[in-house]
């Protein structure tokens, strides 16, 4: 593991040289991620690593890609998707137009999961899915809709557990170890780079999903981001977080009503 003081030096230099602020990231995870890339890339002295980050923008990009966590899956937590399918989408379906934001979408597995739900509910044609991430490389993967075939069996299980009744293999074409998802699923997706740490609201949404992103932020940044979501959410819209995340430390509880026991909150005023 790198030392605390080294991590703080890196945070300062990254901010000074590139304007990116990791200062409000949870330290335990960040330290592990930085230590990991430091070892992975064979550095022996921290000052060499620091100097490489400062002077080599390409390496800086690589470091950011490596330290931001991009592990995601389709229909992660099937019970969550079941609630979306059975409870939330029927409510949203009454609207003429449905705007959804996947904040911190990573490689896009959740966006495709959502598109499948919307298609099966007959709502995809009147929906738009904005998918954003700070990491440009993962957005390219997300746009392509191509995911490793070895994961598909788990995804098919998750899909079924979430209440899916179709043949999951109808949604993709398998080739050379990859599954390419059907292009009609991506027709309503818009991908763009967005930084939750520093960027502002860019639209009004009926449903915002930000699952397992806030866990990397400290309380202050969580507050900022939840308020950014609040600014971006229509009244009676929904905010969905990861199964172990909460808004209770971040925003007045009188504005939001938790949807049963799920990590879904409805904006009531």
């Amino acid at each position: 593991m790198i030392e605390d003081i080294e991590l703080e030096a890196l945070i300062n230099d990254v901010y000074e040289y590139y304007g990116f602020d990791f200062g409000s990231y949870s330290r335990a995870s960040l330290k592990r991620r930085v230590s990991r890339v430091y070892v992975l890339d064979g550095f022996k002295h921290f000052h060499e690593f620091l100097s490489k980050v400062r002077t080599d923008p390409e390496y800086y990009k690589r470091m950011i890609d490596e330290i931001t966590v991009n592990v995601t899956e389709m229909f992660r937590d099937p019970s969550f998707y079941q609630v979306l399918r059975k409870e939330i989408l029927p409510l949203l379906g009454t609207k003429p137009f449905i705007r959804i934001w996947h904040a911190g979408c990573s490689t896009g597995e959740e966006v495709y999961s959502m598109a499948i739900l919307l298609k099966e509910a007959g709502l995809l044609h009147k929906s738009i899915l904005y998918a954003t991430d700070i990491n440009a490389a993962v957005l390219e993967t997300a746009k392509s809709g191509i995911f490793p075939l070895r994961m598909i069996k788990d995804y098919a299980d998750n899909y079924r557990d979430s209440g899916g009744e179709e043949d999951f293999s109808n949604y993709y074409i398998a080739n050379y170890g990859f599954a390419k998802f059907n292009e009609d699923l991506a027709e309503k997706m818009v991908f763009s780079q967005h930084n939750l740490v520093s960027d502002t609201s860019f639209n009004e949404f009926d449903l915002i999903l930000c699952r397992n992103v806030l866990i990397y932020f400290d309380n202050n940044l969580q507050k900022r981001v939840v308020n950014l979501f609040d600014d971006s959410l229509a009244v009676l819209g929904f905010l969905a977080l990861g199964t172990k995340e909460t808004i209770k430390y971040s925003i007045s509880q009188s504005k939001y009503k938790q949807f049963e026991k799920e990590k879904i909150w409805r904006k009531i005023k």
Binding site: T72, N212, I215, K244
Partner: peptide, 16 residues
């Protein structure tokens, strides 16, 4: 999730 410990004696989580 991975379970991690923070300096301010809170627990944090990680899906890496």
């Amino acid at each position: 999730y991975h379970l991690l410990f923070e300096k301010n004696e809170t627990l944090s989580l990680d899906t890496s």
